[in-house]
Simulated assay, not measured.
Amino acid sequence: MAEYTMPIGPLHVALEEPMYFRVDVEGETVKNLEITAGHVHRGMESLAMQRNYFQNITLTERLCSLCSNSHPCTYCMAIENLAGIVVPPRATYLRVIADEIKRIASNLFNVGILAHIIGFESMFMHVMEIRELIQDAKEGVYGNRMDLAANCIGGVKYDLEEETEQFLRGQLEKLKKSLDRIYRLYENEPLIKTRTQGVGILPEKDAIHMGVVGPVARGSGIAYDIRDKAPYAAYDQLSFSVQTETRGDVQSRALVRLREAVDAVSLIEQSLDQMPIGPTVPDRLPNIPEGQSVARSEAPRGELIYYLKSDGTDRPQRLKWRVPTYMNWDALQIMMKDCKVSDIPLIVNSIDPCISCTER
């Protein structure tokens, strides 16, 4: 059987961002994979050191569109950890609401693209139509469909009036039945099962060895979620389950994302029910002292880590972040081993890679 090397990318069907794969193929079967990244380096960490702490909230929100709330929120948490800033109770719930709204939108986008890659265009359009419910909610609450501008050091920049809260509850109520219907289709629809079951398998032991995070890890049976293991904001006051699957294939990762979207609706509703009345920011902010701190959060794609080093001035001496895709993309070498060439876009999409915030 013929053996040859096939270049894929840096522009290709599964990603809107550039990433180059050098694939060794025997017939239609992938035998080896080499990943070449680094096409979209923007010098973001260097830019962060040239801006003050407040300007960097805007900068970090523009690292990535689908998890644009997780970056500034985790960045603010790193500052708060260093300076000993206590976030008001109401603001902790408002942070959860913003985070979970973005999680729903991000997860639905990924499973929608999965249907598009399969060629199930009616399902793709159906998922994206349902996603518009949460997009409209974002626009109604935050005034923007992508970057929410919800976070500030010590709290949040928005609050919910009664009318806005009722609008948000209405959008969530419409979303519930649609999410249940989509889940059943992704679980049982023959076309989806045929293309995704047993494809791109990442066994649990390999997932642990590779250090994968987020739905990629949970799709392989690893019940690891920062919201549960190291709660932040108001997550320790809320009830939710860490969603897992055991097969470790493309379908498992999609089902985990869909169940997490259902959980996100519940978390938002719990936050709205439990949120106390009070301020959304502290009365005053202290100067940021010299020192170092780390903050972690559960972004839609998995564990997000921010490292901050301060020299006591109004600008960070060093700001660095480690994003989920950095841990997950090496696992593609295991997922793609002995897969068919036609399955490559599906497997790449199943880790939901974000190149822009990884290479930054």
Rank of each mutant, 00 (worst) to 15 (best):
V40N: 11
R51H: 11
N81W: 05
S46I: 12
G38D: 01
I104S: 11
I104F: 05
R95K: 14
H71R: 07
P88F: 06
N107Y: 15
I57W: 14
S70I: 00
T58D: 09
C73G: 13
P72Q: 05
P88V: 03
H71L: 08
R51C: 07
L47E: 03
N69M: 00
K102L: 06
Q55H: 08
I101T: 07
P72H: 08
K102E: 13
E45V: 06
M77N: 13
T36N: 10
A37W: 01
M44P: 01
A83G: 12
S65W: 04
I101Q: 04
L82I: 02
G84R: 04
M49V: 08
M77C: 12
N56R: 14
T36H: 12
V111H: 13
N110H: 04
T58V: 06
I97R: 00
N81Y: 05
A37L: 14
C73I: 09
N107P: 15
H39R: 01
N56W: 15
P88W: 05
A78I: 14
V87Y: 01
M77F: 15
S46G: 10
K102Q: 11
H41F: 10
A78F: 14
V96A: 07
E45A: 07
M44H: 09
R51P: 00
F54W: 15
L47K: 11
R95E: 02
A98W: 07
K102H: 11
G38P: 00
R51T: 07
A91Q: 06
R62Q: 10
T92M: 12
I57G: 11
N69P: 03
N52A: 03
N107T: 13
N81D: 14
I97E: 00
T58A: 13
T60A: 06
T58N: 12
V86G: 02
T58I: 04
I79L: 15
V96C: 01
S70R: 04
C67K: 10
H71G: 05
Q50C: 09
M44T: 06
L66E: 03
I85H: 07
I79Q: 13
R103G: 09
E100H: 03
S70L: 01
E80S: 15
S65E: 10
A78Y: 12
E61W: 05
A37I: 06
A105L: 02
L66Q: 07
V40Q: 09
S70N: 14
F109E: 06
I35C: 02
C67D: 11
C73D: 15
I57M: 14
A37T: 10
R51Q: 10
A78E: 06
E45S: 10
E80N: 14
A48L: 11
N52L: 03
V40A: 14
P72N: 08
Y75F: 15
A98Y: 01
C73V: 10
G112R: 06
